[in-house]
């Protein structure tokens, strides 16, 4: 017994001690980072990258607040979530001069409203969120938010929604033509009622399987991000990404330095690595989104420029970023989301 215990303890130490010298713990979206790029970073720096994944900004926030902070170095929140996390004091500040490649950030993304002066973040990828429809199931006009909230009979009961409060509620606001952070009680009640009615047409809420359900045919229409939609279309060519005339959601994901990062130095090295055009282009080529750096053109897959998912037609509505509401308003939206999910 003693021998068994001792050898078990030795094994436990072995498992823990794996590369104690150079670690980086990344908290990232699912299916968004090519393993080859992480391997390249490890080859260049000797730092081992561990990656944990999440499937919505809200889930990431909840997990960080539930004791996750201090165990991760970097995470990749969307635009509005950067602002929320900064407000909650979850982010560390990147001092001037700590990132040598900061100059590669494209001018239009260098000073965004959600993170003035890029104090906590660097751009990762940006794109849009709308939905894809299997045109063999429904061949009518798909460029309308009615597909999700007031669907034709062919699609009813075969719709997958993203399991993401921010995106679903922003889309619903666009559908109704009301502000995203409305304080008007009648508008909020109407929004709630509209979603309760629409819910009967939905089959499921899935983010990480958003592509899989469309490709497998489990869903005939589904909310999805543009790059993910391009990947879905590559697997099933009857899937078409819509640009609703009412508008669609645009987003930018950003790599942020988390407070109490256990490997702050390595985190900064990784951020600098992602600020190299060739490296971030590898992400774009893999995930099919656009980056926020200049000088990436020569490294990009030429096909990306002509992707139908990345080029809204003239008739498309405006793209809208998700807005951050004040806490009292947010409480009502949280309640609406709870009603939607239950």
């Amino acid at each position: 017994m003693k021998f068994l215990t001792t050898s078990a303890m030795a094994l436990a130490l072995m498992a823990n001690a794996a590369s104690a010298e150079g670690n980086l713990v990344l908290y990232h979206w699912f299916e968004y980072m090519p393993q080859a790029l992480l391997d390249k970073f490890t080859a260049e720096t000797g730092i081992t990258v561990t990656m944990d994944t999440y499937d919505s900004n809200e889930a990431m926030l909840a997990s960080l607040k539930a004791g996750g902070l201090g165990t991760y170095d970097l995470s990749v929140p969307g635009d509005y979530m950067v602002a929320i996390m900064a407000g909650e004091g979850l982010l560390d500040t990147i001092a001037e001069g700590e990132l040598s490649n900061k100059g590669n950030i494209a001018a239009e993304w260098a000073d965004p409203s959600f993170d003035p002066g890029r104090a906590h973040s660097i751009p990762y990828q940006w794109g849009s969120t709308a939905f894809s429809v299997d045109t063999t199931v429904y061949d009518g006009d798909i460029n309308t938010t009615d597909i999700l909230f007031n669907p034709p009979a062919e699609l009813s009961g075969k719709i997958n929604l993203l399991d993401s409060q921010g995106e679903v509620l922003a889309m619903a606001a666009l559908h109704m033509g009301i502000p995203q952070c409305s304080t008007d009680r009648d508008q909020l009640k109407a929004l709630n009622a509209m979603l309760m009615g629409a819910k009967a047409h939905w089959a499921s809420f899935n983010s990480d399987t958003a592509k899989e359900v469309l490709v497998s045919g489990d869903a005939a229409a589904g909310m999805i991000y543009d790059g993910f939609a391009a990947k879905a279309r590559a697997e099933k060519d009857t899937l078409q990404y819509a640009f609703p005339t009412q508008g669609y959601v645009v987003w930018m994901d950003n790599v942020v330095l988390l407070k109490d990062a256990p490997n702050r130095e390595n985190a900064l090295k990784f951020m600098d690595f992602l600020l190299v055009p060739e490296n971030i282009a590898a992400v774009s080529n893999y995930a099919r989104y656009a980056s926020g750096l200049s000088g990436t053109a020569e490294f990009l897959d030429p096909e990306l420029a002509s992707l139908p998912e990345a080029n809204p037609p003239a008739a498309a509505g405006a793209g809208a970023f998700i807005e951050v509401c004040d806490k009292a308003t947010q409480a009502v939206y949280d309640q609406i989301w709870t009603n939607v999910k239950k």
Partner: peptide, 11 residues
């Protein structure tokens, strides 16, 4: 699970 790992975050 949703209250701890998902969107809701309502412990």
């Amino acid at each position: 699970e949703e209250q701890f790992k998902g969107n809701a975050g309502n412990w």
